[in-house]
Nucleic acid binder design. Structure first.
Lengths: 207, 207
DNA sequence: GAAAAACCTTGACCTGGATCAAGGGGGTCG
DNA sequence: CGACCCCCTTGATCCAGGTCAAGGTTTTTC
């Protein structure tokens, strides 16, 4: 990414600062250097559904660049974050002159389509305990299959990510604890019975 | 698409025939010539969530080509369909040697990401009547804002597309009729009160 | 390091919509 | 043209999980 300096712009955001909003016109892509970003949708009555959480190395905001319209969702910094902004024209030039880069971009968008497919499946075909279990398993996989995982976000945010409420998260965590699947300590989850957790994530029902 | 002949393969499918299944290895892309295809997810207990319905001119099955894995969902013909299959290697060659083509592909994937964003928002933040209303408005827009629209799929499929059941669709259509928003005749919907339908689709609740 | 703010938990209650069951068309293929 | 099949409708019942309320606990912030 060193190539980009001189054209790219470095931006900094504090916690809770908005980077762009659903409907804004998009004129470039964003690259996370440090920090953590949520991309989300709000309903009119204020409920939130999180679509992605991005960390260092991730890019976001491409959709309007390739499909000349507005952002389909909003983005907010969850921590103090450094973001590199690359203007549309320069980015399109890079992409069109660098086949490998465009293949990378196609792969990145495909990865996100796959992730959305899984999210739609979860929201429509799975119940809350299954979604929670799947989330923990994904986290564990990201952390080299550790049995002890640390939640990267608060439970309030987690509820908006998997499409439920903090109260329900609380109750389900308790149930999963009672069932001997996990043990919860504040921000840390210990996976006690991975087999059952996998079964739960695929279809199962709790107890 | 004439360029492709000689390398591409023409396939035909009858109604209900499966084109590929969730988890299969993908080794090329599919282009619909005639017919209608659904791309969908099944739960273990047989419930279905439709992700896309594709018609003539649409391409599908790209995700595994760009992100070397399996299909994230299944595809089935809804009518007798002619499909052109373009093998991976040839397709990647085309893409990498034709910047305009790769930009088209990026735009297509971006369009789908946008559509998924809307679908996730609908499933998570909207109730069934709002999803139905939004579906009718989308249909109307596709049919040059006609007030009289024809459903391209059965109500049973529609229920799997918007994430509910045929029974609920039936009840909601009746309520929307009673409220004077629409009038239903078998496969045709007449929009009587577009304003209220828009309001309903955005947040509203029925009566 | 104390005050304020955000976050989390638990209980009681409520409701949207799923499920189960049973009839009623309507298109289509011998 | 009649029989089958699929699709749709309507009613009765049920339940996962949302909402409201209140109290306790961590985190931030100054």
């Amino acid at each position: 990414m060193k190539i980009l300096s001189g054209i790219a712009v470095r931006l900094t955001f504090n916690r809770t600062e908005i980077i762009f909003q659903d409907g804004d016109k998009g004129d470039g892509i964003y690259i996370v250097e440090t920090g953590k970003i949520k991309v989300y949708k709000l309903s009119l009555d204020g409920k939130e559904q999180i679509l992605h959480i991005f960390g260092p190395g991730h890019t976001f905001g491409e959709v309007p660049v390739f499909q000349g319209k507005s952002f389909p969702a909003s983005a907010m910094a969850l921590e103090p974050s450094d973001i590199v902004f690359l203007p549309r024209d320069r980015f399109v030039e890079l992409i069109t002159t660098t086949p490998a880069l465009s293949m990378n971009m196609l792969a990145d968008l495909s990865r996100r389509l796959r992730a959305f497919t899984i999210q739609i499946e979860a929201l429509s075909l799975k119940e809350v305990p299954a979604r929670l279990a799947a989330y923990f398993l994904t986290l564990s996989k990201e952390q080299k299959n550790a049995a002890r995982i640390r939640l990267p976000i608060s439970k309030a945010l987690l509820s908006n990510l998997i499409g439920t409420t903090p109260e329900t998260i609380s109750r389900m965590l308790k149930k999963m604890g009672d069932a001997g699947l996990i043990e919860v300590q504040t921000r840390t989850i210990e996976i006690l019975d991975r087999e059952s957790l996998i079964e739960l994530s695929e279809s199962g029902r709790l107890q």
